[in-house]
């Protein structure tokens, strides 16, 4: 496999690649701001950044419909935004405000928007995989052609829920995509220390389903792989495991002073494969994007994020008494 071959956009004068670019850049700008505001103390707890991996969430979600469902990980902002989550409500949740997606009860690791099929970020590695497999079962029982997508990392692929869930999905032919974002590290531990195979996708053979390796920094390659898997799932042919080779540019979390064992040269080499730059260059070469249009898009994104921060800052904190609400749903 080579990591440098660009997939040519198949859309001509179609807005979809530009929407995908906008989505990728929105994720990046959102997280740059979230990291700054976290360092400044306006965002609490812990923030895990997805920067460098944007092509995976965007490429996969571009192949989905609004009523298809996804589940995310502790590194969840990218999946939320790629599925169409609202910037204001996301930022407000990070700020711990009443107007946030979870009314300030979840924070960065627990953002969900069930109305757009985003079943939540999840703070337990591999914890979301069975849950979204249940969404796949619901889609199958419903019989309307919906699909469900599990995003997870290389670390989760070593955990029981990954294997148990894929086995069930394969056996029941659930309309599922299992998308492994292999960023080569489980927090600070290398994939090589925890996984005897070079490709997570090879594990698909053990469950009798297709396993695909894709350049996770090439958004069109991810999109095409996802589209094929979605078509397969909608046709009742069952799940596909897609492994996207990618890299996170930042440390495991944004916490200051955290040890990052990764060699600087390795980080630099992956920065050279920036999924956004590659896509921009590609779109410009195809004459689907001009430098001016790109600058304009970026400025619009930055303005939208500024608005989201303003929305968050102006939103009230939840009343302390709200801590005892929402434990149970009222029937």
């Amino acid at each position: 496999m080579t990591l440098t071959t660009e997939k040519q956009p198949r859309f001509h004068r179609d807005s979809k690649p530009l929407e995908m670019l906008r989505s990728m850049q929105t994720i990046r700008r959102f997280e740059e701001r979230a990291s700054d505001d976290y360092q400044a103390g306006a965002i609490y707890g812990v923030v895990h950044c997805y920067i460098g991996e944007e092509a995976v969430a965007v490429g996969v979600c571009a192949a989905l419909n609004k009523d298809d469902q996804i589940i995310s990980t502790h590194r969840g902002h990218g999946h939320c935004l790629a599925k169409g989550a609202d910037l204001n409500r996301m930022m407000a949740e990070l700020y711990g405000r009443q107007t946030g997606y979870c009314k300030g009860k979840g924070g960065s690791m627990h953002i969900a928007d069930f109305s757009i099929g985003m079943l939540g970020a999840n703070g337990i590695v591999a914890g979301g995989i069975p849950i979204v497999t249940g969404a796949g079962l619901a889609a199958q029982l419903e019989g309307k052609g919906r699909v469900a997508v599990s995003f997870f990392g290389d670390g989760a692929s070593n955990a029981g829920p990954f294997h148990e869930s894929i086995n069930i999905a394969a056996t029941w032919k659930l309309p599922m995509l299992y998308v492994c974002e292999n960023n080569l590290y489980s927090a600070g531990t290398t994939a090589a220390e925890t996984l005897a195979l070079s490709d997570v996708a090879a594990r698909a053979a053990g469950y009798g389903i297709p396993g695909v390796v894709v350049d996770g920094n090439d958004v069109m390659a991810v999109y095409e792989a996802a589209e094929a898997a979605v078509n397969r799932a909608r046709a009742g042919q069952g799940p596909t495991l897609i492994e996207c080779k990618t890299y996170r540019w930042r440390g495991h979390t944004e916490r200051p002073g955290q040890a990052d064992p990764r060699p600087q040269e390795e980080i630099e080499a992956w920065r050279q494969r920036d999924p956004i730059n590659r896509f921009v260059t590609n779109l410009m070469n195809q004459e689907l994007l001009t430098e001016e249009a790109w600058q304009e898009m970026d400025a619009e994104i930055l303005a939208a994020i500024e608005d989201a921060v303003k929305f968050a800052e102006e939103s009230p904190f939840p009343e302390p008494g709200a801590a005892v609400e929402d434990i149970f749903a009222e029937s």
């Binding site: 469902q69 589940i71 069930f114 079943l119 914890g127 995989i129 069975p130 849950i131 979204v132 497999t133 249940g134 969404a135 796949g136 079962l137 619901a138 889609a139 029982l141 469900a148 029981g160 829920p161 148990e164 869930s165 086995n167 069930i168």
Partner: peptide, 13 residues
Amino acid sequence: GAFTGIAIGAAGS
């Protein structure tokens, strides 16, 4: 573990 989680996801759907 898997079928308990599957129930959660189906319930949320």
